[in-house]
Design a protein around this nucleic acid. Structure first.
Lengths: 220, 220
DNA sequence: AGGGGTGTGGTACCCCGGTACTACGGTGGC
DNA sequence: GCCACCGTAGTACCGGGGTACCACACCCCT
């Protein structure tokens, strides 16, 4: 029997996960945490096999929570689940000691098998990330120097802005960005406006092109 | 990094290819398939850049597997490798949509450069075959059949529409397209509308992304 | 002689994207 | 303690993009 703790700030999201997990005979949900601090406390109390960890949470975020849970040395493994397949998140999460990194739009079967893998000590990474992770970690290999030296056109952007630019490059509309990233549309517009100003793009289309040209987004 | 799937029914042959490919920094072997059906399934799961495809395999053969992989419209290119330099095989393979056709007794360097060429969208044909292929196809087409095999998502577009899509991909606005191509803006809008409808893009941004993904526009 | 596809053009309408502000809590630096 | 930056959020406004139509000349095919 695999025991799981769900850590996510969105009640609806937690509900969905709980429904999915509890439909499985070999998985038990021990509880739900709505932020990083709660996740740490509940892990210390209940010692779940796996913590299903969202990254973006109010207060202590998922990365830091992962770091502290892993640091305790318990047998609990952390499987990070996020909306984004952004490189920074993956790197940070895996550096923090996570055993896996999946994307929320994965198939339910993927999530379940990921949990089982992590519980048995294996590691899982979302297919869409694997490639870029390999690229990034292949410093020793030639041609990797190019990829991880940030394009000068992007250096003035903040991390958040680069995130937003990435999803702009994937074709998301402002409303989609707002809903999927849990932001107000006005906030998205503020971000987009600053990105356009900083990169000298006249509209989001130029930004999409920039995202491709700087390899922030790869053609698929 | 170029990812490759090896499809061959002989384990020893697969082993040889894998050793050769993995000795290269820029090539990764994603997996091995021992027949056509497996090749199709693994391609659907792993989306290699290139499938190294043997023709003679039990069950579904390499030609039919190539046809189905190409029909999915993914970016995976098929490089057919066979023991024989028979014309029928080459014709059938290239008609099936293969991007290349090499013979197994080729030099290792030839195979490697062939894989790299195919991965970037070019096509290769074994020197011993080229002549006869040209002769056979010369009657019908001016050599364009293989090299610019258009992405299936673009085949329904007219030449003019592909032209417009290209400049959309370069970030031109409707008014820019109109003035630079000496058209009325209403005409441009008509074209754009048809392009969006045919390609299933909801707005020009999706079209820009499509232009990049189909390599109609190259990142610079 | 008709018909379908293509390239061109027009009108009217609505909505999203982008701009121009303002604002405020948190964090980190000095 | 203060200031700068960042991420968040709001309002108001305008213009381009996209849609839904229609129209017509040209070409190719049967």
């Amino acid at each position: 029997m695999t025991t799981v703790l769900i850590a996510d700030d969105q009640p609806l999201q937690r509900f969905g996960f709980r429904m999915l997990l509890e439909s499985q005979d070999d998985i038990t949900v021990l509880g739900e945490a709505s932020n990083g601090s709660e996740a740490i406390r509940m892990t210390a109390e209940q010692h779940p096999d796996v913590v299903l960890m969202d990254i973006r949470m109010p207060g202590l975020d998922g990365i830091e929570a992962t770091r502290r849970i892993v640091a305790t040395g318990g047998r609990t493994r952390v499987l990070i689940l996020t909306t984004f397949d952004l490189d920074e998140y993956a790197h940070a999460g895996l550096r923090a000691g996570a055993s896996g990194f999946l994307i929320k739009d994965a198939q339910p079967e993927e999530l379940l098998s990921g949990i089982r893998s992590v519980a048995t000590g294996d590691a899982v990474v979302a297919p869409s990330l694997t490639r870029r992770l390999l690229d990034a970690y292949a410093h020793h290999l030639p041609a990797a120097t190019v990829t991880d030296s940030p394009d000068p056109r992007l250096t003035t952007l903040t991390d958040r802005e680069r995130e937003i630019l990435t999803v702009i490059g994937r074709g998301w509309t402002n409303t989609e960005i707002a809903t999927r990233l849990h932001l107000a549309e006005s906030t998205v517009k503020t971000h987009v406006g600053r990105i356009l100003a900083k990169t000298g793009s006249r509209d989001r289309i130029q930004a999409v092109i920039l995202a491709y040209d700087t390899r922030l987004v790869e053609p698929s």
